[in-house]
Amino acid sequence: MKVLVAVKRVIDYNVKVRVKPDHSDVDLNNVKMAINPFCEIAVEEAVRLKEKGVASEIIVVSIGPKEAQEQIRTALALGADRGLLIQTEEMPSSLGVAKLLKAVVDEEQPQLIILGKQSIDTDNNQTGQMLAALTDYPQGAFASSVEVEGDHINVAREIDGGLQTLKLSLPAVITADLRLNEPRYASLPNIMKAKRKPLDTKTPADLGVTLNNTLKTVKVEPPAERQAGIKVASVEELVDKLKNEAKVI
């Protein structure tokens, strides 16, 4: 079974985000970039399916600037077989990304498509569900476990307050939540090997997709700063403040 995994190049999750002085966007100059943590979990899940003999080939696709090749190489080092970069300088909206992925799905005909549930930059949590709508495939969003059984999968999904398990017929779209797995570290030999794996580059035009982002960012501001409060000397003082000053207990 062919598995398609989508990965996104984002700011490393350990980096403190700063807003540009002109409030046009966050400052990404000279900032460490990495594979989106949820996308990494998606790649790991695909690799595990391959190790179990369920997946036969893993194709990893990224949409973004030329540098997103680095994140595709990371995924290849984790165990994906070949990469595809859809190169675009302007980042499309989630719907635009879903349309590009739909075009890739049409070409590659994977049985399973795994994405991260959201990227930690735009925090949209939309692309997987949108791709499922465009392909008319069933969706297992926020997956915490995936079991392939013949022509269908059982997906446990994280929902408010617990888990919901669904049976989806293949092909299907999965979005990975935190609990799905813990991604491995790529070994040095695998990193070297990844450099020789095939990586193709296409443009949105090659795929016949016209992008039209109807969302315009007017400004980006830092959130209201929290002022450090006071230190209390004892538990008694703390409880008194919470009861009588903050009135929260």
Binding site: D121, D123, L215, T217, V218
Partner: peptide, 13 residues
């Protein structure tokens, strides 16, 4: 909020 609330984007649709 974007970047887990480390920035707030005003967006026109």
């Amino acid at each position: 909020p974007i970047y887990a609330g480390n920035a707030i984007a005003t967006v026109q649709s």
